[in-house]
Amino acid sequence: MILLQELIHQTYFVLAGLIAVLLVTRLFRRKSRPGLAYDIVYAYAIIPFVLRALHIK
């Protein structure tokens, strides 16, 4: 059980990393909301996903 729980735990970090990658690709290749405002929002919205994936916070 503990091993399975640990596996799920690590899966979530991977998931955070995947979402970060998806967001970065959308920063460059998105079709909707192309303006500067959302460029900025995309750029900072990746922060928690990157830092979580890197086990920093």
Partner: peptide, 23 residues
Amino acid sequence: VGRRVGLLLASLALMVVGTKDIR
């Protein structure tokens, strides 16, 4: 692309500076 790369780098810089206390 340049603007977006710039923003991404700014975000990374913010991560480095902003996590000093966290780390």
